[in-house]
Design a protein around this nucleic acid. Sequence first.
DNA 1: AGAATACGTCAATAGTGCTGACTTAATTTG
DNA 2: CAAATTAAGTCAGCACTATTGACGTATTCT
Lengths: 173, 173
Amino acid sequence: MLKEKTGDEAPIRAAVANEDGIDFTLIELFFFAYRDFTSDPDQMLADYGFGRAHHRVLHFVNRRPGLTVAELLDVLKITKQSLARVLKQLIDTGHIVQLQGPRDRRQRELYPTAKGRELSLALSRPQSRRIQGALMEMEDAGRKSIEQFLKAMVNPELRAQIDTDPSHGAAED
Amino acid sequence: MLKEKTGDEAPIRAAVANEDGIDFTLIELFFFAYRDFTSDPDQMLADYGFGRAHHRVLHFVNRRPGLTVAELLDVLKITKQSLARVLKQLIDTGHIVQLQGPRDRRQRELYPTAKGRELSLALSRPQSRRIQGALMEMEDAGRKSIEQFLKAMVNPELRAQIDTDPSHGAAED
DNA sequence: AGAATACGTCAATAGTGCTGACTTAATTTG
DNA sequence: CAAATTAAGTCAGCACTATTGACGTATTCT
């Protein structure tokens, strides 16, 4: 036995199918759908020297103006250090401004500028167009079903936090 | 004027809403849904020292055994160099084997081993469970609507290639 | 024979994310 | 009030995925 790799290295020639009780079709479609969903803004962002992370920060700051840094970290589920570079760039380029928290002066409330608002809208426009187009191609179901499905895909603990409505307490008081 | 940053830096205090003609709600939900959708396999992959890219390669090799390297690159829409490390690791760990193409000996047909098949199934199991759960939470629509929606989210040029059915010509001839 | 193709590989770079450690300022607690 | 905690910022180092460009080798096509 010359360096046999012990394990069974025989090639399996049969394709896995949905028969294994696993919905490979939807798993695969979800991958393709999300990739193409993000491709339009990704291309635009490249012109600014930004990446997808900038889009996400910009999105949530526009959705919930007055968010604190800690709240933003909690929504994105990333670390302070990961956010730092991206947020700094968005502030330096005048897309986002920080205001000292009125109640707690340690906090920094994040707000979009007009420039930041515009970019956020521009990035979201092709995504929304894609969604509208996809909704129209469905036969039986409507927008509400998709909203229900996507929300149900999110971890249960987080569903309250992301509630469909834009008034989250961060902006209004 | 002491270092005024010229631009209008006034904070915008109003949240963007879906009224701007943009469906921010679904855009946001799609982000959260995909993040959580990938979180389960991501955690498992960490035990192997693998990342999400390994999962994707493993998935398509299991879905379309006999795929050539070029075909895989075309499906994933990444570069040869990006694939190289990931594929090499999967081969070195005995999850995937390469067979010389029967017609064109320059080609390398990719097949999963039993080990690779098992890992692929294990990674997909929690994802499929999540999807099944989400489908059940919908009121009016069914699985077919979601498949239609997701497929419609994909760039039109690519829809043929990813056709729902697992027999893609790569495996069968 | 020469061009084109399929694959592999080397090197450098970018973007996003992580951990750990440490500082500053402000608030809370005892 | 002093001490502990909290919010935010920062420095350093590392991992993963992906990029571009260049080059080598084997094979097939013209």
